[in-house]
Nucleic acid binder design. Structure first.
Lengths: 175, 175
DNA sequence: TGTATAACCGAATGATCGTTAGGTTGTCAA
DNA sequence: TTGACAACCTAACGATCATTCGGTTATACA
């Protein structure tokens, strides 16, 4: 399957480092076959990114509304790391290159929405919210990549660590 | 100056996307001149990374011990973003590629040390501390990149946002 | 049977890239 | 004056890469 092989190669080497030849080799076909299915390397990459964005959003949607007793933030985090667990290569590919940030924006907006509903954040300024979203977004990406290199850690522990590190119960909890 | 041009090109295009030809062109010399000063593209990149690591650590060292009335964490963050402000291209280059993580380890260790001294973290497990460090490390990188695209925001506001988002006063402040 | 179509291939094309060969110029100490 | 040297150049080499050309095979439908 070309798409599976392409996802792995993009995840391992990044967009620039991935070669059509290697993708074809891993798919068990010759390079021209890739071009029978995709117009260019860039289109192949974009299509894969779009598909993963849809799958990630579906992971979230499947857990909304959230189970009784969990906060919206915790539900979002658990769904996020469940996705990382289910699609390790796709996850790495999705967050490795920043060339298609427009595709990631749907997830970023969802994150900002949930963050804005956290207690103590309702009346914060726009810039404050945007900055908090960015810290959280990139921090979660980093934590997920760390997790992929430490497979012994359970998802519950990772979610708990994310909650702890990002415990923004009050905007002025800091000294 | 070759090193300055190389820093900019690496920052803008990443290691794989940067070409010796473009670095030479921006330096006002021909490509072979680059090889009179550096053995290879990879050595040039590594040398630049090492230099920036030293400068960043120096930025931190210059602010330790920290001024009266500020926490160690806040002092670290302010020095960090002061560095971002002073060396925008170098900063982007330094954090863009993850191929030389060993060079970044010195800063990561410093971050973990300061984090471990925060109230409520003294008796946490090793994995918890490592995860919190990773969230913070990558979150700060992301916030700094966001800041570079929003130059109107003051450094104080960015530091405050970082403190707020990462207000880990107590390991179980989260719900 | 004929033909359209889909999936695949080997081989090439043109561009880019890291790198090297070989040479010129200018500086400066012996 | 000589010779070492540093800094620089043009030109090329060899590899890699995205992409295309032109063809073969197999399926399926008229």
């Amino acid at each position: 399957m070309i798409e599976q092989a392409a996802t792995e190669v993009f995840a391992e080497r990044g967009y620039q480092g991935a070669s059509i030849d290697e993708i074809a080799r891993r798919s068990g076909v010759s390079p021209p076959v890739v071009y029978d299915h995709f117009a260019s390397k860039e289109e192949l990459h974009r299509r894969l990114l779009e598909r993963q964005r849809d799958e990630l959003v579906a992971f979230w949607a499947a857990r909304m509304p959230i189970p009784e007793g969990t906060s919206a933030l915790e539900g979002l985090l658990d769904a996020y790391f469940a996705y990382v667990e289910a699609h390790p290569y796709a996850y790495r590919m999705y967050f490795r290159d920043t060339t298609h940030r427009d595709i990631q924006q749907q997830g970023t907006r969802l994150l900002a929405t949930i963050l804005a509903q956290q207690p103590g954040w309702e009346d914060s300024g726009e810039a404050e919210l945007e900055m908090a979203t960015e810290v959280m977004r990139t921090g979660l990406i980093g934590l997920a990549l760390w997790w992929q290199e430490h497979p012994g850690v359970t998802r519950a522990a990772v979610v708990a660590a994310a909650m702890r590190a990002l415990s923004m119960a009050s905007p002025r909890a800091a000294s």
